[in-house]
Nucleic acid binder design. Structure first.
Lengths: 165, 165
DNA sequence: TATTGTTATACTCTATAACTATA
DNA sequence: TATAGTTATAGAGTATAACAATA
């Protein structure tokens, strides 16, 4: 196999920059909307959405939540603390494993999501989907889903390899 | 024209989540690499890269830099201050407009970029392009470029419209 | 001994508002 | 009066390391 070249080609650079800029701008818009409409940061929204939509019981362990959101443990503890203080989630020791903490979304948490969704959808439609047809949206998903799976599987890049100038 | 529905369809949700997660994971990896290899945050890297690569003279006005990086003015002042303190850029009043400040990358700034590029490229290749063929990379660019243009053009979402629960 | 989670702490980043100076 | 930039300041977010408790 050939050596990896030291630089990327033009297409790759374009894809990288476009991806980062689109996501950055979108995140900026979305954070503002969530803050304005529901006093939530994007991370808090992610946590609530994950509990409220992904999880059938509305509960998940701290560790599983942290894995899903990239965070450090302490960062998640901090955010969970804020959400709990706001009454949007509850924390309780897990039944099976006394070390674990189970986080559960409350009714207030669910209604907070509901409160925020319409504006959220509006932002997405204006900023993102206004420029994408249905077919293009489908194509985008098909391109990015394998990338996401690859990234999730990839070694968390815990240094060691790179590291060198 | 039909009313906008209150929710997005499944494809749209998938595209949104995939986009945000891919970009989030990638940014996380990239920030760590930049920090490890060159003591730079992603924003600082963006600023240096813009000056060093995009600009022929290596100079840009503060305002133009701010526009390209989303930031508030004060945020840019802060970052430019850090870069200047590190000797990577210089600030000087603009020749034509006394109100403006021109930021110029230094040799140290250019070599800092050079120092960081190899590891950066490696991360991109491992995390992003390992899961994309050349054709797919091209397709991704074609999808995202119009989105970026649309977002750049779109009203900075200065509230007013949304605003309602 | 390894895992789960919290705490304490320190730091980085971002935004708002008030202010200066030039156009 | 509007624009360019800085400053002061305050708040949010993140990560690291030390710690306690359970497996």
């Amino acid at each position: 196999m050939a050596d990896s070249p030291t630089s990327l080609d033009a297409h790759q650079l374009s894809a990288y920059f476009a991806l980062m800029e689109v996501a950055g701008l979108l995140r900026h818009s979305v954070e503002q909307q969530l803050r304005d409409d529901g006093e939530l940061s994007y991370v808090q929204f992610q946590l609530l959405a994950r509990l409220g939509l992904n999880s059938p019981t509305g509960s998940e362990r701290m560790t599983d939540l942290a894995d899903g959101v990239v965070y450090s443990r302490s960062g998640l503890t901090y955010q969970a603390g804020l959400l709990e203080k706001a009454g949007l989630v509850v924390r309780a020791p897990s039944a099976d494993d006394e070390r674990s903490v189970t986080v559960t979304i409350t009714d207030a948490g669910r209604s907070r999501i509901a409160q925020v969704i319409p504006g959220h959808v509006e932002v997405l439609r204006e900023q993102l989907f206004a420029a994408l047809s249905d077919d293009q949206t489908h194509a985008l998903t098909d391109l990015l889903t394998p990338v996401r799976d690859h990234m999730r599987a990839a070694p968390p890049r815990s240094a060691g390899a790179r590291r060198r100038l």
